[in-house]
């Protein structure tokens, strides 16, 4: 069976085509095309401009995906799109295309939760069976474990996402947004060596990042111009602090569940320093870390196609009248029909 997935919940527009082979139980990625709305250094992406970007590039990106996959329209079984969570206008722009394709080609449409897309794609690519999932991106920060047909949220951010904290600090330093602000912070951090203490805000299983951002902003404004510290030192200190917090809550979730596998998904998940710190913790518990590279970590269409097809195979489709979008859509709202209860 073949599915096409359309993703546009943030500044990445992604189209993916995936094939599930029933007999061999194998999954083939046939196409995974992405186009990113990159804004000038010092600025973020706004819903209106991002939606316009997606509308401009939707057709060429779908065309390229179909060409790369070399599939005929009649071979496609269903059309999957991101229902949420994410920014309203960009989500709707992409959903409109998905609905139109569904009616033009007479194919069922499947609404997919973005977070579930990340988790299922991570499991598929890495082969992690029943891991604790750390989902870290520009819009989400959650520690998740599976139980009784739902991905349960064990801990999450109380304010902004970890990626949002990194992105906004990159903006303060006027680092470029190409290829992504987080990547540029990671490169700067490699050259930093002085650790500046920042607030450490773990609250039980939850974390909070907004105070850290305010604090580091003040430090950067006061101390970088007089040469006391460098941007590199601050990037280093910020990463170390944020990632230590994430590792701590992940470890606590592992202890709770008794799990030895950790899967890192979401855009921040391709940060090698985070993977390395997680590795050190998990090694001490005789466990294993699973992570993917930017093709599957950063938002993409293939994960939407994959999660949508998993649901479709259990008989799920979304009636067209209900193929809406929603900015808030929690991970634990989705009933996971394709996994055994435990």
């Amino acid at each position: 069976m073949i599915a096409i997935g359309l993703e546009g919940s943030a500044n990445k527009l992604g189209v993916g085509i995936i094939e599930h082979n029933y007999d061999s139980n194998k999954v083939n990625v046939l196409a995974n095309i992405r186009h990113t709305h990159v804004t000038p250094p010092g600025t973020g992406f706004l819903p209106k401009d991002t939606a316009a970007h997606h509308r401009e590039f939707a057709i060429p990106v779908i065309r390229e995906a179909l060409k790369t996959a070399n599939v005929k329209v009649k071979e496609i079984d269903c059309i999957c799109y991101t229902k949420g969570p994410g920014m309203g206008a960009p989500l709707v722009s992409v959903a409109i295309v998905a609905r139109t394709l569904s009616l033009l080609w007479d194919k069922p449409i499947i609404a997919v939760n973005h977070c579930i897309g990340h988790i299922e794609m991570g499991r598929e690519i890495t082969g992690a069976n029943n891991p604790i999932v750390l989902y870290v991106s520009g819009g989400n920060t959650q520690v998740i474990a599976y139980s009784e047909n739902r991905y349960r949220i064990f801990g999450e951010t109380l304010d902004i996402a970890v990626g949002n904290c990194l992105d906004r600090f990159a903006r303060i330093l006027k680092l470029p947004n190409d290829p992504s602000p987080g990547y540029n912070i990671e490169q700067f951090a490699k050259r930093g060596n002085k650790f500046i203490e920042l607030p450490y805000t773990v609250k039980g299983m939850d974390v909070s990042f907004s105070g850290i951002l305010s604090n580091i902003e003040t430090i950067s404004i006061e101390q970088i111009p007089i040469g006391q510290i460098t941007s590199e030192d601050l990037c280093f200190s910020l990463q170390e602090t944020l990632f230590a917090m994430l590792v701590e809550i992940t470890e606590r979730a592992m202890a709770h569940i008794g799990s030895r596998e950790v899967l890192i998904v979401g855009g921040v998940g391709c940060n090698l320093r985070l993977q390395e710190m997680m590795q050190k913790m998990v090694e001490q518990r005789n466990g294993k870390v699973f992570a993917t590279d930017e093709r599957f970590c950063i938002d993409n269409g293939i994960m939407i196609a994959h999660a949508g097809l998993l649901a479709f195979r259990t008989g799920y489709t979304t009636p067209l009248e209900e193929s809406t979008c929603t900015q808030r859509f929690r991970t634990d709202e989705v009933y996971i029909s394709w996994r055994k209860a435990n």
Binding site: A51, R55, A58, I59, I62, R63, L66, K72, V73, K74, V92, S93, I96, V97, T100, L101, L104, W105
Partner: peptide, 18 residues
Amino acid sequence: LDMIIMVIKTMDAFDGTE
């Protein structure tokens, strides 16, 4: 109007695609 344009562009590109 933005949405209608998107619908028309999609039809133009993919109606009848094999």
